[in-house]
Design a protein around this nucleic acid. Structure first.
Lengths: 151, 151
DNA sequence: TATCAATCTTTGATACGTCAAGGATTTTTC
DNA sequence: GAAAAATCCTTGACGTATCAAAGATTGATA
């Protein structure tokens, strides 16, 4: 989303917000060592919930089912995760990290956390609080927005 | 990008920022009447620069050359734009809106501006200023970041 | 218990974005 | 003025996201 064309003051603000997001994503990609963000999120989630169904994983990471299936297949061939059918429900597949996947994601996540810290370098606790509040308000505005459909 | 796993305070803030961005993009898609955001940006740019080369267009909208070519081809078949080779330089293709494209994008852009306005509903001028400043600082931090590569 | 509905995963179609390589044209340089 | 470099556009290969439909399994219902 570019949005750069907007002529209004608020439009420019939102554009800046979208823009910083893109910058963050790009910079972030530079230090993920070949892992896409989604794949990294999947592994990181498995670091927390050591054994979890694909469905749950999908909900936590918030991408499409199909994408999760494909990523997990890939990660399995790479030896990062294991997948086994649940004994109690043959529909579900339980996913867990391999030893290799665990050590890998642990280091990557630390790197990520460090990266995130640096983005807010120089922000006081108070400023961080204010910023969080404002983001919340925008999120609320977005969610409660009436659907402005073109008529 | 999910980033939801982050354990640090700042990490959660950045996550909120990324998250609100996703929400905005999703809501925005609901009112674009079948136009992807990039296609809309292309048309909106043509509303400003009435005749422009693909190269310039690509730089303004900030997506890949290949993507621009494909979008413009599509928009051409839909009768939204026209493309003609430049008389002075046969390499470049000049793009412009058709009458239909013009009326279409005008309405869509107005809708978009209205949407953006609503996202910041309730923000005072002062708050908007503060928020802009903070976003700027994050952007600066991101851009000046040393490349933290996994070693 | 047989059927119908719900749930979980997979696959196919489609859309979008990037990078890299290739064609055509212009500009530079010797 | 001809060869080399640069510029603009296009195309191909690939990665990833979504939706919709289909398979397999389980649960609910009559």
């Amino acid at each position: 989303m570019n949005l750069s064309i907007s002529c209004t003051e608020k439009g420019r603000l939102i554009y800046a917000l979208v823009s910083v997001n893109k910058t963050i994503a790009q910079k972030f990609d530079l230090c993920t060592d070949g892992f896409s963000q989604t794949r990294m999120d999947l592994l990181a989630q498995l670091e927390v919930d050591t054994t979890i169904s694909q469905k749950e994983l999908q909900q936590r990471v918030n991408v499409d089912n199909a994408a999760v299936t494909r990523h997990l297949k890939h990660l399995e061939t790479k030896g990062m995760i294991e997948r086994v059918r649940s004994a109690t429900d043959n529909r579900v597949i339980l996913v867990s990290l391999t030893a290799e996947g665990a050590t890998r994601i642990t280091r990557l996540r630390q790197q990520k956390d460090e990266f995130l810290e640096q983005l807010l370098e120089g922000f006081t606790a108070d400023e961080q609080h204010q910023l969080t509040q404002m983001i919340q308000r925008i999120e609320t505005n977005a969610l409660t927005l009436p659907k402005t459909t073109v008529t």
